[in-house]
Computed example of a mutant assay.
Amino acid sequence: MERARVDQSAKKTSEGGVLETVKVVIQALLIALVVRTFLFQPFNIPSGSLIPTLLIGDYLFVSKYSYGYSRYSFPFGLAPLSGRVWASEPKRGDIAVFKLPKDNSTDYIKRVIGLPGDTVQMIDGVLHINGQPVKRERIGNYRSQDAWGRDVEVPAYRETLPGGVSHVIVERDGDRGYWDNTYVYKVPPGHYFMMGDNRDNSTDSRDESSVGYVPFANLVGRAEIIFFSIDEGASGWKVWEWPWTVRWSRLFTPVK
């Protein structure tokens, strides 16, 4: 009888330990879900459309609260929201993650260039907003790749948007790229015009058949900080390679 009592006590202790572990796991998952939904969501950069601001292999946190919340702030867009709650409009120059309007599910990241009511046009590679050329200063060259993957030196400029936000852009094809001369775009109310900093290698609002104007409701959040960065083509899980594959200088740098 004494042995039976000991066995039952051990069994209860074991069951209690399993239940406590399950509770801790569930609580951790709930906390992670709340943080991801309402505060910060991690994203990685798979393309070079925002070079040199963001590089392939950058991992960053996006603040979900910056623009308020829409259905796309929640996993799988399941929340029954119409428009945005606690809305705060993006500023020109913000780098924002949004759901592609064509399918409302694919995540894109670009820079906010045009606000509701603005006109936007590219003329010989120079961005024009509301009929005025945006200030652009040549600052040298940037080492990149051409359309065939060959290493090349491409022109780099410092562009200063109306309002004062300054950032670096590159022109892989000079000022004669496919999207370097466009008609005048008129941004509709409640929409935004998004562009990449790698002007000749970015599918953005200039391509109305692929992206076009982005509704306010489709904005997911604002890019805030790079928390990890690894060389293009390197594997993040190979921690023994980190000393020479991690871009240490980019860690914990703000996104501007």
Rank of each mutant, 00 (worst) to 15 (best):
V112N: 08
L127D: 03
S105A: 14
E137K: 12
N104T: 11
T160L: 04
Y157C: 04
D107T: 09
W148A: 12
L127M: 12
R92Y: 08
M122C: 00
R136H: 12
L100C: 09
T106I: 07
G114L: 03
K91T: 14
P155R: 05
R92I: 11
V97N: 03
L100A: 13
R138P: 05
V134L: 02
P116S: 02
Y108R: 10
D124R: 11
L161K: 09
P155G: 03
V165E: 13
S166T: 15
V152N: 05
I95W: 04
H128E: 12
G93R: 07
I95C: 09
V112R: 04
G114D: 03
K99D: 07
G140S: 04
T160C: 05
I139V: 14
I139M: 04
K102S: 14
A147N: 11
Y157R: 08
V154H: 08
V152I: 15
K102F: 10
D151W: 15
R136V: 12
V97P: 04
G164H: 10
Y157I: 07
H167N: 13
D94F: 07
G163C: 10
I113P: 01
I139H: 09
M122D: 00
D146A: 05
G114N: 06
V97S: 08
D151K: 12
R136M: 15
S144T: 15
I123Q: 14
K102H: 11
K99C: 13
Q121L: 05
K91G: 15
T160I: 07
S166C: 06
N130I: 03
D94I: 09
I95N: 09
D124A: 10
Q132H: 13
E137F: 05
V126N: 06
A156S: 14
I113Y: 04
P162E: 07
K91S: 15
Q121I: 03
E137N: 13
H128I: 06
G131A: 00
V112C: 11
R92M: 10
V154S: 09
G164E: 06
R150G: 03
R158Y: 09
P101D: 08
R138V: 07
